[in-house]
Design a protein around this nucleic acid. Sequence first.
RNA 1: GCGCCCGUAGCUCAGUGGAUAGAGCGCUAGGCUCCGGACCUGGAAGCAGGAGUUCGAUUCUCUUCGGGCGCACCA
Length: 638
Amino acid sequence: MNITDLKTLTAKALKNAFDLDYDIDEISWELPPNKDFGDLSSPLSLKLARVLRRRPLDIANDLGEALKPLLPETIESINITAPGYINLHYNYLHIIEGLLAAPYSIDAEKDSKGKIVIEHTNINPNKAAHIGHLRNACLGDTLARLLRSTGYRLEVQNYIDDTGTAVADIVVGMELLNPVWDQEKETYDYFCWDLYTEINDRYLVEPELKEKQREVLHDIERGGNPRATLAKEISTKIVNCHLATMARFGIFYDLLTWESDILHLGFWTHAFNHLKDNDGMAFETEGPNAGCWVIKLDDVEGFSHLENPDKVLVRSNGTATYVAKDIAYQMWKFGILGLDFQYRPYITQENGQVLETTDTYNGEESDLYGQADKVINVIDIRQKYLQDVLRLSLDKLGYSQEAKNSIHFDYEVVALSATAAKELGVSVDEEDEKGIYAMAGRRGIGVKADDLVNMAIERATLEVAKRHPEHSNEENVKLGTQIAIGAIRYYMIRYNMNSLIVFDFNDALNMQGNTGPYLQYAHARANNILQRAKDQNIKANPSLPADLELTGPEKDLIRRIYELPEAVAKAAEALAPSQLTDYVYQLAASFMSFYETTQVLNAPREDIRAFRLSLVELYKTALKDALTVLGIPAPNRM
RNA sequence: GCGCCCGUAGCUCAGUGGAUAGAGCGCUAGGCUCCGGACCUGGAAGCAGGAGUUCGAUUCUCUUCGGGCGCACCA
């Protein structure tokens, strides 16, 4: 029984006891602040006091009586405490018996729900990925794993803006500065990182270069010229670097979608031909937007206060704005554009999965992509306004269902702490220890994702080597890498999505306490017990010993394992990876307490030993499943 | 100027109408001849200020202060 079932039962009890129809979403069952009160607790009677005009305690008593006959065997008892709480106590023996008989499987509902297209990573292909991009990719990847595990069909897309000013700047840099890439010294994305900074510095002293930038941009957009070819070559090389970086984190994609393909196939033109007669669109003949095609948003809440709330889609010179292209692209994702890309295989990724790419000139038709029931765009909160415009525009154009199913997963950015900024050579106000320093690609200010992993691997490998002098260096690096990835992925997703991460090297590389490696250690410890049992030929037994009395730590552990499906479902519904990290930490911590206090292999009785071994097996599977959803490697030894 | 987000322990974060506000780091006191101490058990320490709504506010409203971000015929 889960909380939703319990709420339904409670609603039924309300009906029986008071003839009251109550919205089940208004019913709450929570973890009480103190274990003495029970395992689940509801303040419902306090809320009902006004409605029913009775004392909360009396309501609680009556409701408790009505609830009692409805409760399943997993609830052992029910009691009432002042000023009117209803408390439930689990029957832990019954719960663990059920879990051991039928373990929960995280993939049980595979492909049972609709299709979700999730777009994440989306790094401008003109420089190395930094930790801000990494937060995006980790969040997007975890969301994809989370939603897939709850039954959705997922398609992960990585959009490449290969025709924007960012890439144009690199082309300008190449033409102007003639830099030489030393392949021995650095990877291509690092090389461009510096070039991007250099050219932006040049713009500052030679503003007339901006004219050249415009020319280059125009050539790239037009296509079919040397500059466009160079731009494509640069973007492709950088994208390959990004893919390699993300692969280190176990992040993979289904499809690369290129801005140049959207352009060359005329997605927007196609959409425009269908939309220009639409009531949502207007051609302005006067006012600030004279000569432009716009979407009227002046009657929309949140926009009406703006000086110029309408959004220009086609400029007075006839060219389309970025939002216009975005609308067409979003329509394609839903399968309502009436136009499709061509596709071809791009590479086979490390996980064995083939990554496909759009390709206008060398691709083939496919009906696999897009056609989503729901679209999630993982883009940081600074683009909230534009994503709102996108969604509202769809609504205005008559695609209200698609608008409702367009989700902007908006998360706060990663900024640098004063100490981190100082380490990167940024000039920092010495007085201001709590200062926050924004990363800036143009100025080359940021922590590169690969640098961070390399540091983490070095640190973790050192720790591993301390513990395992008998291992080869190669083995240690392999394990150190898994631990490093665990630490960083956990760091990137554990924060609430609307809290700014003030990046600090010590926090990100920490491997003690509430961190990824703690979870990994909690897995390795369980495995260690199981491995020793196997070596000593001790068998587990999932049936309960007679007269078994569970210890406190055993109950805590059982409770956490029992809650796993609920925790995953809630995190998925809320689109909140951080909710799942919270839960998994609790799960791991409950095992750590169990481990310290409860003998498994040296248990006093043979049947208890066998039972505890089963419990450890069950826990290990649960934790491993949860870690898989989080994308955190689960090594068997550390 | 307008709008959005944030302010919880020395630090980094949970909690978002209900009981005694929870973790980690740091500090501090301990941990069995024992399945691995990347661990466990304690301790000190906190809701930015004010007003309101409510039986009840860290949570909702208003306001002050402090911080971040956004408001293009840029992407």
